[in-house]
Structures are given as structure tokens and as C-alpha cells.
């Protein structure tokens, strides 16, 4: 496989790999390094890529495993928190600051979730994967996914409500 072909295969999902890595590793730099590493690993076995039915799922699984290993190793013991820039909407400045705040809350709340819940929430609510795909990636049964997802969504909502009422009161 030539480089251009490889890039065509990888292009559509490289952002997904990055977002999953960032969800797990939090730091932008760490996530960039991880994604780069994964893409280079994929490139190094590019002769075999044709044999995989679903390169995206394969790459996502690789990313998941890589990041979990990363988190386990001591190297990653002091990760930095880096926030992304949020795009601006047309709301007034006051409103804009408020939404930006509450959006970064969601990000922070998600950081505190257990890894499994983080991944399920990321894959479902951000990447819009269906349960079968998630099950394949995370080795989970649909019922287990449903439970985890429900738990994650409820936690996010609850914590968001807490913050909200603190803000008012």
C-alpha cells in the first residue's frame, strides 16, 4: 500500500482516534503523541491492513489499549490539563462566558468518570457509534453498555445540576 492510499484509509477516522485518546489521557500533547504513535504503528503494518475488515475499529481498539497502558505506566503519572478552544457562537459576551464555563464543566465532569464510562460516553454521545460497534471495541455486551452509559449520563447530569444550583444560590 502506498502512502497516499494509506492516508486515504486513515484520514476519515484519525480525528476519532485523537478524540478518544484525549478523552482518556486528558492532555492534548499526550493525546497527539499517542495518535501519532498509533498511526505510525498502522503504517508499519500497512501490508496487512487489507486483511482487516474494519480498519477503523481495529485502530480504535489499538488506541484504547495504548492509552490504557499509558495510564497504567508511571510515565503518565503527571498529566497536564489542557483545555481546547471553544468555537464562538453569536450569544452576548456574558452568555458566551457562561456557556463556555458550563461546557468546560462537562469536560471536567467527564474527566472524573471511571475509564469505562468515559469511553462509552465518548463513543456513543460524541462519535455516535451504535451498541454493536461499541461492544466490539470494548468487549462488552449490549446490556452492560446500556447500564454503563446510563450511569455515565446520569452522573454527568447530576453533577451539572449541582454546579448549576451552586451558581444560582
Amino acid at each position: 500500500m502506498k502512502q497516499s492510499e494509506f492516508l486515504n484509509v486513515v484520514m476519515p477516522f484519525k480525528d476519532k482516534l485523537f478524540r478518544l485518546a484525549k478523552r482518556l489521557l486528558v492532555s492534548r500533547e499526550e493525546a497527539e503523541d499517542a495518535t501519532q504513535e498509533i498511526l505510525m504503528k498502522l503504517w508499519s503494518k500497512n501490508e496487512k491492513i487489507g486483511n482487516y475488515k474494519n480498519v477503523e475499529a481495529f485502530a480504535m481498539t489499538m488506541t484504547k489499549n495504548f492509552c490504557l497502558d499509558r495510564l497504567k505506566s508511571k510515565q503518565a503519572s503527571n498529566l497536564k490539563l489542557v483545555h481546547s478552544n471553544y468555537g464562538d457562537d453569536n450569544a452576548s459576551l456574558q452568555k458566551q462566558v457562561e456557556t463556555r464555563d458550563s461546557l468546560s464543566w462537562v469536560e471536567k465532569i467527564m474527566e472524573d468518570l471511571p475509564e469505562q464510562q468515559k469511553m462509552v460516553l465518548q463513543l456513543r454521545d460524541v462519535e455516535e457509534y451504535d451498541f454493536d460497534e461499541i461492544g466490539e471495541l470494548l468487549n462488552m455486551k449490549p446490556t452492560a453498555i446500556r447500564v454503563t452509559l446510563s450511569r455515565a449520563r446520569k452522573t454527568v447530569r447530576e453533577k451539572l445540576m449541582q454546579k448549576h444550583s451552586y451558581g444560582i444560590g
Partner: peptide
């Protein structure tokens, strides 16, 4: 918003 995030780093292939 989270879905808008892009991987911008170049990969030296």
C-alpha cells in the same frame, strides 16, 4: 463541540 476537535499534528510516515 467535542466532535469538532481535530488531529492537526503531522505524521512522519
Amino acid at each position: 463541540l467535542a466532535k469538532e476537535e481535530r488531529f492537526t499534528k503531522q505524521v512522519p510516515l
